[in-house]
């Protein structure tokens, strides 16, 4: 199966001019599958951590959004135990004009600005709202425990 020009171009650009703090490398035997790492944004509980994700471009891409999932455990109200992410641009607000690059930037931004009002992991979100400091401490703990090599 030939790879659409769009995916080739995107991949080339990701390699040639990588986004600081983000890397996305396609799998050798499946060019639609990417190994992704995102650095925790500074001034966030995830600072200093490097989070691994997987990203898959489905058959209909770019008409349908890519599938992205965290592989590293993370304590975040919008990311659940399985690493699934609650992010509008990955669902209803996807536009075919968006790219892997922009999606990964959105995810990085989500790490910097958790939104407990629209939660995926209810327990985390509740804690986040009730006792934000404690929640942030846990997030830092988890980052140190799971996201640092």
């Amino acid at each position: 199966m030939s790879l659409p020009k769009r995916i080739i171009k995107e991949t080339e650009r990701l390699m040639a001019e990588p986004v600081p703090g983000i890397s996305a490398v396609p799998h050798d035997d499946n060019l639609r599958y990417f190994n992704v790492t995102i650095d925790g944004p500074s001034q966030s509980p995830y600072e200093g951590g490097t989070f691994k994700l997987e990203l898959f471009l489905p058959e209909d891409y770019p008409m349908t959004p890519p599938k992205v999932r965290f592989l590293t455990k993370i304590y975040h109200p919008n990311i659940d135990r399985l690493g699934r992410i609650c992010l509008d641009v990955l669902k209803a607000n996807w536009s075919p004009a968006l790219q892997i690059r922009t999606i990964l930037l959105s995810i990085q931004a989500l790490l910097g600005a958790p939104n407990p009002d629209d939660p995926l992991a209810n327990d985390v979100a509740q804690r986040w709202k009730e006792d934000q400091n404690a929640a942030i401490d846990t997030a830092k703990e988890w980052t140190a425990k799971y996201a640092t090599a």
């Binding site: 659409p4 020009k5 769009r6 080739i8 171009k9 995107e10 770019p62 075919p96 004009a97």
Partner: peptide, 11 residues
């Protein structure tokens, strides 16, 4: 349009 690159398919 001359020199147009489609943002979706990169054609």
């Amino acid at each position: 349009i001359k020199g147009f690159v489609c943002e979706i398919c990169c054609e």
